[in-house]
Structure formats: C-alpha cells, structure tokens
Amino acid sequence: MLLYVVSTIFVCYLSFNLRRNQLTPIVWNTLFWIILLFTAVNAIAKSFSQERHGRLLYYYNLCSPQAIIISKIIYNSLIMLMLSGMGFIFYAFVMGNPVGDMLLFAVCGLLSSIGFASVLTLVAGIASKADNSATLMAVLSFPIILPMLLMTIKLAKNALDGLDWSVSTDEISTLLSIDLIVITLSYLLFPYLWRS
C-alpha cells in the first residue's frame, strides 16, 4: 500500500512538473486529500474480502462481533495513520511544504484517518457480502465520506494558512462528532451484518 501512495504521489508530481509555479496551496491541499481518499478506499476495501471463508467462520466462533468491528477499526485507523504520515512526508518532499501550522495539520490528519477508517470498514463489511464488491465499495462509500472529506479539506486549509486555533474549533468539533457517530453506528449495526 505504501508503494501505491508513493507511486500516486510521484505521478501527480510528474504531471504538475510542467507548471510548477501554478501549484497554489489550495490545489496542493485538495490533491493531497484526494490521494489519501483513494488510498484509503483501496487499502480498506480488502479488509473483509481478503479473508477466506474458513477464517471468518473461525472468528465467528472465537469472539463477539463487537470485538471484531472495534479491532478492525483500530487496525485500519493505525494503517491509515501510517499511510497518511508517510504519504505526507513524501508528498512534502517532492511537492514542497506550504503548511503554516504543523500541529493543526497533524490533528486534522489524525481525525480524518480515524474517520475514513471507521466509515470504510463498515462499508467494506457491507460490500463484501455482495458479489461485485469493488464497484459497490466505491459507489457506497464516496457519498458517505464526502462531508467528512470537505470538512477535512477546510480544516487543512486553515492549518495551511496558519490561522489561529479558535477559527477552526468548529471544524474540529464537527469532525470529531462525525467520527463518534460513525463509530457508534458501526458498533451497533455490525452484529447484524456479521450474522449473515
């Protein structure tokens, strides 16, 4: 997956190579989050479909569905954190780093990694039950993840401009509450998915 991020970033870098000076902070920001979004979808889509039927049956006997969804969310969040951290380092390395407030940007990355991971884990669970799960995954997850993506981009924009923290408390609290809602819903709904 790391290779996937790095090669995507490199493709973007080469495509923008012609007009380096046209890469405004807004384009930089949007491009970064869109790369991360696609990485997340690709990374997490596999989390259920990858596992063989026998192993799922084994898990089913071993522990409760709540434990499974929570552990999957934590695992995927860690993967997303790692991917976004490494992605950011490489991205800043080739495309330049216009971020004004690194701490705020890191908070933004943390919240969005957890959010992406929790939404996509549940959607991957839903999609893996159907036959054509790759297409379904994209169709189901993009509309749901869009508000989160927009909030993240807005928050990251504030971090880029180095605005005061008080400006972005709204965005932080909204992102946090969306994360909480999604995780609670996954916790409540996953047992029904797991049974089938």
Partner: peptide
C-alpha cells in the same frame, strides 16, 4: 438485512449533510 444496515447508516449521514 444488509440494506437495512446501510439504510440506518445512510440516514445518520444524510441529516448532517
């Protein structure tokens, strides 16, 4: 079962949007 799960999830996202 699966579309009910999605329906509940979708409504919870729909209201904020």
């Amino acid at each position: 079962r699966i579309s009910s799960v999605y329906n509940i999830f979708a409504f919870a996202v729909f209201i904020p949007i």
